[in-house]
Design a binder for these strands. Structure first.
Lengths: 135, 135
DNA sequence: CTAATCCACTTGTATTTTGCAAGTGGATTG
DNA sequence: CAATCCACTTGCAAAATACAAGTGGATTAG
């Protein structure tokens, strides 16, 4: 499941990120962690896109293997597991915001707050900082 | 193959971009158009990652359907087809540069020029403009 | 103390997508 | 006019995905 340096198709940076995150589900988990404050398996399962439980388990495992997500036991409920983003995971924020901005321009049913696009154009750095403090 | 507004799993912007571009191959084609000046089917086929010809044909079709890539006949060789990015496709550049920057930080075999990361940190807007003029 | 419930998964199976090899058909070149 | 180039298409085996059901340990309710 994990890559060693020889198993990559190439060392192009675009290819590198695609081999870690390039599928239809993985970034939805990152989104839930980054923007929606989700932390539990059951919370990811409950997202609008209806991810299946085996796919979710597999993606969380890959994300942990790749050092993007970490797991720990909830100290208050010892049968629960808390997922969170590592530093490496949090550094995906600027890319995620660019994705959000692009989609807000081209999805005519987008649920992005129109104020976001304006704020992003006007004060991108400030927005990034604010989101980082949140997460 | 194409989406209508009801067929999306959700209207989350991250989900929107994933449904257009979220797989292990599509963005490699965008990369070749954006950064490598490729224009012909055979050039995409020849990339380092070894995309299969049926997958390439399928992804080019989806990209065209989604308005990210356009096709025209090469006026100088009428049996050749030139692929190029639309405006919508070119607007993926900032996201692609964020991906490149992230990978350059975390792939220890990255082939990204170390000067890129420094320039990106120092003068992101200028870099984006320069790349856009190129493409 | 015990039964029911919650939680984070795992398992099984049908369907879909992918990867690989080979082939096609029209335009161009020699 | 035969060979080659180009942009695909086809067939098939292997892998990944979707959906439904089940599991096993910890917590809660009575």
């Amino acid at each position: 499941m994990q890559h060693n340096s020889q198993s990559y198709r190439s060392h192009c940076p675009i290819n590198f990120i695609l081999e870690s995150l390039g599928d239809k589900w993985t970034l939805l988990v990152v989104r839930d962690l980054l923007f929606k404050g989700k932390r539990y398996y059951g919370e990811f399962l409950a997202s609008d896109e209806n991810i299946s439980t085996n796919i979710l388990a597999n993606r969380l495992e890959k994300l942990e293997t790749n050092g993007i997500v970490s797991r720990r036991i909830d100290p208050e409920h010892k049968s629960k597991i808390i997922y969170s983003l590592t530093e490496k995971g949090k550094k995906l924020l600027p890319m995620m915001l660019e994705m959000t901005y692009w989609s807000s321009q081209y999805d005519n049913c987008s649920n992005v707050d129109p104020a976001f696009a304006k704020e992003f154009e006007r004060n991108r750095e400030g927005l990034i900082k604010r989101f980082l403090e949140m997460s």
